[in-house]
Design a protein around this nucleic acid. Structure first.
Length: 288
DNA sequence: AACGCGTGGGC
DNA sequence: TGCCCAAGCGT
């Protein structure tokens, strides 16, 4: 009897080890999947869960969110980070209502046209909400493939045509979507960036990187400083507006960030992004 | 095609 | 303790 395929081993592992995440429940709609995927862009699962539940309850369909001012989405975003995603989700809901009759499109190329939906998220929604047989290449999947097949500690910075084709070729027919979520889960739980748990890995025996002694193939990302950046300033300013049920005077923002020049630059940026609306009387609010 | 964009938890 | 990171996207 031949060895089971890579895909079969990963899917069997998934059956035993998958987390019971709320957006994987059978009754979740494509909209619920889409919202989860956007929230999960650069934000850990544990922090997404409660906010996602709240959004599902409050805005069960795209039309429900589209009916609200964009500021409601920004406020309900809470502290997930990268709040432009909330704005884009509101924009996606609006576009789904206006261009697609309120129905989330199933075609990745169409999903890709929605604000905040890039290559990864389009593929993820198509696969996880509609069962599409498309390669879902996120950082987890790419890391697993880099290690198992390419003797590298991590994937290169940019996805090449060759990488996408290889990933597509690995999709098992008739169970592509389930396989995709399974590889992703393996990367998230076992084949993690630092200190991979190879003793728990179902494919450790066929991992090229492990066989080679897990060499450090370099390319570490530059450490990001945060303290004192415009980014932090933006976060502080927006937090004031999120936590206030109504518009606030400029003085309230002055208190949130001491450096006047940087504060002005950050506020200009927030306004330019559409995250903050300047009002009469030197007041500011979340966008209508 | 680098770069800007939040936030909080784990090691 | 800090540093590093977490299911990317848009410009």
């Amino acid at each position: 009897m031949p060895d089971p395929s890579f895909a079969d081993v990963v899917m069997r592992w998934y059956d035993d080890s998958a987390r019971d995440l709320p957006w994987r429940s059978a009754e979740v709609t494509p909209w619920g999947v889409l919202v989860s995927e956007v929230m999960l862009q650069q934000t850990p699962v544990a922090r997404v869960i409660p906010v996602w539940r709240e959004w599902q309850q409050r805005w069960p369909a795209p039309a429900d969110l589209a009916a609200e001012p964009a500021g409601a989405a920004v406020r309900a975003w809470g502290r997930l980070g990268y709040p432009r995603r909330a704005l884009r989700l509101h924009g996606a809901a609006t576009a789904i209502v206006n261009r697609h009759g309120g129905v989330v499109p199933a075609d990745p190329a169409v999903l890709r046209q929605l604000p905040g939906i890039g290559n990864y998220t389009a593929a993820a929604v198509a696969a996880f909400a509609f069962g599409a047989e498309v390669a879902v290449l996120d950082t987890n999947v790419r890391r697993v493939y880099a290690r198992v097949f390419d003797v590298a500690a991590d994937a290169p910075a940019h996805i090449t045509v060759a990488e996408r084709r290889a990933a597509t070729d690995r999709l098992p027919s008739s169970s592509a979507a389930r396989y995709s979520v399974a590889v992703m889960e393996l990367g998230a739980l076992v084949c993690v960036t630092r200190s991979p748990r190879c003793t728990q890995c179902p494919v450790a025996a066929r991992c090229a990187w492990r066989a080679a002694g897990m060499p450090d193939t370099g390319q570490r990302r530059a450490a990001q400083t945060y303290e004192g950046t415009d980014r932090q300033a933006r976060g502080r300013l927006l937090a004031v507006l999120r936590e206030s049920p109504h518009a606030v005077p400029a003085a309230a923002l002055d208190a949130a960030w001491p450096d006047a020049a940087q504060r002005a630059r950050a506020l200009d940026g927030l306004v330019a992004d559409g995250l903050v609306a300047p009002l009469d009387g030197d007041r500011f609010a979340l966008p209508a």
